[in-house]
Each structure stands twice: as structure tokens, then as C-alpha cells.
Amino acid sequence: MEKTEVMHALSNEGLSVNMEATVLYHIIPDKANEVHKGIGPNYEGVVVMPQFRSVVREVVAEYQAIDIYTEKRAVLENKVFEDASKRLKGKNIVVESVLFRNVELPQQLKNSIEEKKKAEQDSLRMEYILEKEKKEADRKRIEAQGISDANKIIANSLTSQYLTWYWISNLDKHNSVIYVPIGDNGMPMFKNVDSVRTDIVTNVTNSTG
């Protein structure tokens, strides 16, 4: 059998809590006649619900109002289940389960809960932003370090001997070049011969004209 009732209880901080409390129970089959004779047909109103209400109020008074509104509600339900089972066992009644629903808290407590949730969400959002920025900064730092290391390697490898070898090894890629040693190491430079010839002709023409 199932019975649901809207109950009013006070938390351990004296706040009023309203909720729907449901109890599922049954009479021990072979004790049914004894229950009907000893308690009467209205055993629910005479024994079950009075005991159930009493247990609910006693248990709620041990906790804060917020506990009934959060995941701790299951703890309270289990406590009520255990205590009610002990009290009704002697009456040959077995409690199957207890359930709290539609819990209503005082408005000021509701406001506090909403403010707390908003603060937690803002905090999580800020942590996410900071973590994202930190990762981006780390990425840029690693990238910059990689570029710096690469530049150092390149700079250390660009010796005059290497540059000379590199230029000479590329001479065969040019159809016409002029090898002009400059500096102490004789670094070569490339110049298109046709371009040089054109420059000379142009200069001669201008001087004779």
C-alpha cells in the first residue's frame, strides 16, 4: 500500500520545510487478522501515518533545510525508512520504501541557493578562461622557443666555408655567371652575363650620343 501526505517540518536551524512524503508498506500476511483485531481496519490512520509523520519530523530536525533539497535527501529518506521500520515492525507492518518529493524551502534560502549556484558557475567559467589562456600562453612560449632554437642552429651552421661551398655547388644552375671574389674569403656573386652586356651597350650608346 502507498500513502502520500504533504508534511510540514522544521530543520535543525529552525527553517520551515514543506514536502510530499510517501511511504510504501504492507502488513505481514500471516499477521493480517491480528492487525485487524488489535488495531482495527483503520490501521493506516491509527498507526502507520502517525508514526510516519513523527519519524519524518524527527529526522528532518537533525539536518539543515538545504540537505533535503540536495543529494543528501536520499540520506534522510533512508534514515526515515530505517526508523519507521523499527517502530512499525512491532505492529506487524513492514515499510517497503520512503520518498520525499516537491520539497519547498523558505524563499530566503532559495535565494541563497541560487546565488551560490551562480557564484559557482562564475567561478568555473573564470577557471576555464584562465586555463585556456594559460594553455595558449604555453603554446606560444613553446613555439617561440622552437623558433629561437631553430634560428640558433641555423646561425651556428652558416659558416663562411659552408656559404662558399653552397654558392659554388650552385654554379651549374646558372647559364651565364660571373664569379666575383669579394672579401677575405672570396665569396662569389652571380650576375647574368646577358644583363651585363645590355648594361654595357646602353652605357656606350649614351656616351656616344
Rank of each mutant, 00 (worst) to 15 (best):
A119Q: 14
M189K: 11
M19N: 05
V46L: 15
E104F: 03
I66K: 07
S85A: 13
K91M: 13
E96G: 08
F52L: 07
N111C: 00
K31Y: 08
K89R: 07
Y162S: 03
A150R: 11
K191V: 12
A21S: 10
N192T: 00
E34H: 04
K135I: 11
A119F: 05
E136Q: 14
D83M: 14
N175M: 06
T164Q: 09
R139E: 13
S11V: 08
Q108H: 09
E77V: 10
A74Y: 07
S123L: 15
I39F: 02
I39G: 02
K135T: 05
V94F: 07
S112H: 06
L10Q: 06
Q121K: 15
N185Q: 11
Y25I: 07
L158A: 01
M19Q: 03
V75Q: 11
T164F: 09
S112P: 00
P181K: 10
P50S: 08
W165T: 10
I129L: 15
D30T: 14
E136R: 15
N206C: 02
S97I: 01
V75C: 03
T159N: 06
V60Y: 02
W167A: 07
V196K: 02
K140R: 15
V193A: 13
Q107K: 12
K118W: 04
G38T: 09
K116R: 15
K117T: 06
A74I: 13
I200Y: 03
N111S: 06
E143S: 09
A65V: 07
H8M: 12
